[in-house]
Structure formats: C-alpha cells, structure tokens
C-alpha cells in the first residue's frame, strides 16, 4: 500500500530530529491609534478602500443609512436567503454584500472571516463588491498575533481577505476583480 510505503521510506530517510525554533516575541504593544494607522496604510497598499467612522457614529445606522439596499449578515433574512443550499445561479446575482470581520491585521490589511460570518462559503467570493465592517479594537499587529487569537481547530472554513480580488498576469499590469469582488470597502468603527 502506498501510504505505508511512503511512510516507511520517510522513516528510513528522514534526517536526525531537530527542534522547532524559539519564536520571536510577538506581542506588539503598539497603541490602538498607531495600529489603526498601519492597518489603513496596508489597506491602501492592497487596493482596499476604507472609511473610519467617528466616535459618535453607530455602525449599524451608518450601514443602513448609506447602503440601504445591501444585504447584511443576520439582517433582513440574509442568512436564510443565501443558505448553504442556495443555488449557484442565485449567488452569482449578488451585487454587494456586507460582512462583519472578526479581526484585522495591521501589517498586511488582512481581515479574518469564517463559516460563522456567512451561511454560504461562496458569498464573499462571488459578490461583485464586498463591504466589511470591522471593530477597530480588533486590529492586531501581525499574523502571529492573529493566529494566536483564532481557533483553527473549530473552523470549518476561514479566510484572510486582504483587498479585492486581483491579478497581474497580463504583463504585470494590476487589475482588480480577477474573479471575485472588484472592490472591497472596509468600514472601521
């Protein structure tokens, strides 16, 4: 059986055991404001747009005021409408959706979303435009901190999204919207 043969050869051939490295200290005690600035700079770099709400603005009322027609998780029956069994053809019709981000990473503008944030996994990829709302208190410095916060063993599917879908496969010219969202707007509150 291939499995056993492969494992047998590995056992015979593997080098002497070497330990994992001692990792660098990861906690970055940067003040919230500074992390937010780095995060916004990264969003800019990866082609995402962003809006930062002022302190007295409420995210829900902001979104329903500015994007009244747009489907939002947990609101207006969105979960039922785009359930796991929803047809691909219907999902293909999604123009814009609003999702709530779990956490953001300052060093690269990535935002974590997982199964708990969308009823159907295709939603964040098939939509023409994606809006992600994110609590500024949930911005961490780097990937190490981010993975410390996440529970990978409890995540069926999860994704870091950093900017809109993009390609540079034709002469290295950057084009947004290769397959998925042509634009990504992050609303930071």
């Amino acid at each position: 059986m291939s499995r056993d043969n492969i494992l047998k050869t590995i056992r015979q051939n593997k080098p002497e055991f070497t330990p994992l490295p001692k990792y660098l200290e990861v906690t970055d005690p940067k003040p919230r404001r500074e992390l937010l600035e780095i995060f916004e700079k990264s969003l800019n770099q990866v082609g995402a747009e962003f809006i930062e709400l002022s302190l007295n603005e409420e995210i829900d009322s902001y979104l329903s005021f500015h994007f009244p027609e747009v489907h939002q998780i947990g609101k207006n029956g969105f979960r039922d409408e785009y359930s796991a069994n929803c047809s691909k053809e219907k999902l293909d019709q999604i123009d814009t959706i609003i999702l709530e981000g779990h956490l953001g990473v300052a060093e690269n503008g990535a935002i974590w979303l997982d199964d708990s944030d969308f009823p159907n996994r295709l939603v964040p990829f098939v939509a023409q435009m994606v809006i992600i709302s994110l609590d500024s208190a949930k911005i961490l410095s780097n990937m190490t901190e981010a993975y410390h916060k996440l529970n990978m063993a409890g995540t069926g599917f999860g994704v870091f999204i950093s900017g809109p879908s993009k390609t540079a496969d034709i002469e290295q010219s950057l084009v947004y919207g290769a397959h998925g969202p042509k634009s990504l707007l992050v609303v930071i509150y």
């Binding site: 770099q45 870091f160 950093s162």
Partner: peptide, 19 residues
C-alpha cells in the same frame, strides 16, 4: 513572491461544505 504583504486570499479549508 510578489512583494505584497500577503496574498489577497489566504484560505483555510478544514471541513467539507454542507453536502
């Protein structure tokens, strides 16, 4: 690879989708 801080999508697949 490309000088981006991270790829646009870093996808983590653990369980199959429903059905």
């Amino acid at each position: 690879a490309t000088g981006q801080p991270i790829t646009t999508y870093t996808s983590h697949y653990r369980e199959p989708k429903a059905g």
